[in-house]
Amino acid sequence: MSHSSPTPGPQAAVAESPLGRLYEVGGRQLMLHRTGAGGPAVVFLPGAGQVGLDYLNIHDRAAELTTSVLYDRAGTGWSQGAQLPRTAAEVTGELRDLLRAAGVPAPYLLVGHSLGGAYARHFAQRFPDETAGLLLMDPFHEDLHDRAPRQAREKLAQLHAQEVPELTQEQLQQARQQAAPLFAKWPVAVRRPLIEHHVTAAWKAGLYEDRNLYDEVSGELRHASDLPDVPLIVVTALGHDAAQAHLWPEGVLREINNAKTTLHTQLASSVPRGEHRVLENAGHGWLHEERQDAVFQAIADLLNACAITLCSSACCPRPRPRLGR
């Protein structure tokens, strides 16, 4: 099933991001925020309905080890609008051009979450020489839809057929109140505009992006080259966040988790240096906050693997200290 509902993105004219700066890429202004030094650079690819600054806290920790990069895809966050959904080829080509425009040298350790995990895989498939490693956080898998229980597939079809609603002022205010505790650890200068963006724009872009997972993006992943032989960690979150619990009964969630775990295990074993890690008590949407230490450990482990593999190259000049688990 293909969807082509257009959306102009969060704003026609690009608003000023609380952090980072804009770069001209393909005729659009795209937001990128970079801190830290050294290589390979860690690049965070957000999930659908999320933006680069959602990963600010784990980004700041990664920047203690190496260069760390947050960005917003076109049509999301503080980047200029684009028609959504988009192909994986468009998104990964755009990311490559943005990193070059910002002067962030390859290769990269790509940290992809959910939909961002699919894009990270596609980037590695297209540009293997520019990929140092992969951390896939509860990534979307192209076969999950077919393996999910019938009840889940039918519910998704209903959701995708619906028009994206407009929230009332009362609903917007309620959403702001619900989001405030989630972003309590962000700096005030970032927290306020980030909450406002989430309740007014990010969730809409997420719905449009999500509709593209089950046809175009899945097809692109299936027909792309194999993943390169780079260090890979696939993290599976088995907890349920509020959105999932609202959509699916407990039995359906269990079946989805079983199918997801099997696919993630297979994905991790598809490369020689792949590893699968399971987080029992982390939900899908915010595992990078709920289990920040586990995510940071995975980043550090992958940087160590890169240093061992490329210790004589300029991108990994020295081994990283291994952290305690």
Score class of each variant (00 low, 15 high):
Pro40Ile: 14
Ala106Arg: 13
Val69Leu: 06
Val43Phe: 09
Leu22Thr: 14
Ser68Ile: 13
Pro85His: 02
Glu16Pro: 01
Asp97Met: 01
Leu110Lys: 11
Arg28Pro: 10
Val91Pro: 00
Pro107Gly: 10
Arg86His: 00
Pro18Phe: 09
Leu19Arg: 15
Asp97Val: 11
His3Gly: 01
Val42Gln: 07
Pro40His: 07
Thr66Asp: 08
Leu98Lys: 06
Gly93Asn: 06
Val69Phe: 00
Gln11Val: 10
Gly112Val: 02
Arg34Tyr: 03
Gly75Asn: 04
Ser68Trp: 05
Tyr55His: 15
Leu65Gln: 15
Ala106Asp: 13
Leu56Val: 11
Asn57Ile: 15
Val111Gln: 05
Ile58Phe: 04
Val51Gly: 07
Ala101His: 02
Gly93Trp: 12
Ala74Met: 02
Gly112Ala: 04
Asp60Gln: 15
Arg96Pro: 06
Ala12Glu: 12
Arg96Ala: 10
Trp78Asn: 01
Leu84Thr: 05
Ala62Ile: 15
Leu19Cys: 12
Ala88Pro: 05
Ser5Met: 08
Glu90Asn: 02
Ala102Asp: 03
Pro10Trp: 08
Pro6His: 03
Arg34Asp: 00
Pro107Gln: 14
Gly36Leu: 11
Gly9Asn: 10
Gly9Met: 08
Tyr23Ile: 02
Gly52Gln: 05
Met31Lys: 04
Ala88Ser: 13
Leu98Pro: 10
Arg21His: 06
Arg34Thr: 15
Leu65Val: 14
Asn57Gln: 15
Arg28Cys: 09
Glu16Met: 02
Gln11His: 10
Leu32His: 03
Met31Gln: 10
His33Leu: 06
Ala15Leu: 10
Arg100Asp: 14
Gly9Asp: 12
Pro85Arg: 08
Gln11Trp: 12
Val25Arg: 07
Pro10Ser: 12
Gln29Gly: 13
Ala13Asp: 15
Gly93Gln: 02
Pro10Gln: 03
Glu24Leu: 11
Glu90Gln: 11
Gly93Leu: 08
Ala63Phe: 11
Val91Arg: 02
Pro40Gln: 12
Gly49Ala: 03
Glu64Met: 07
Met31Thr: 12
Gln80Val: 03
Gln80Trp: 04
Arg21Ser: 08
Leu56Glu: 13
Gly36His: 14
Arg61Ile: 14
Pro8Glu: 02
Tyr55Ile: 13
Ala62Val: 14
Leu70Gln: 15
Leu95His: 04
Val91Trp: 04
Leu70Asn: 12
Gly52Trp: 04
Tyr23Lys: 03
Ala48Leu: 00
Val104Leu: 00
Ala89Val: 08
Gly36Met: 13
Ala106Thr: 13
Val104Arg: 01
His113Val: 05
Ser79Cys: 09
Asp54Ala: 12
Arg73Pro: 09
Val111Met: 11
Gly9Thr: 05
Val104Tyr: 01
Tyr23Thr: 04
Ala101Gly: 01
Leu70Met: 14
Gly77Trp: 04
Leu22Gln: 14
Ala101Gln: 06
Ala101Ser: 01
Thr66Cys: 04
His59Asp: 05
Gly26Ser: 06
Leu98Ala: 05
Arg28Leu: 15
Trp78Lys: 00
Leu110Trp: 12
Arg34Ser: 13
Gly103Phe: 00
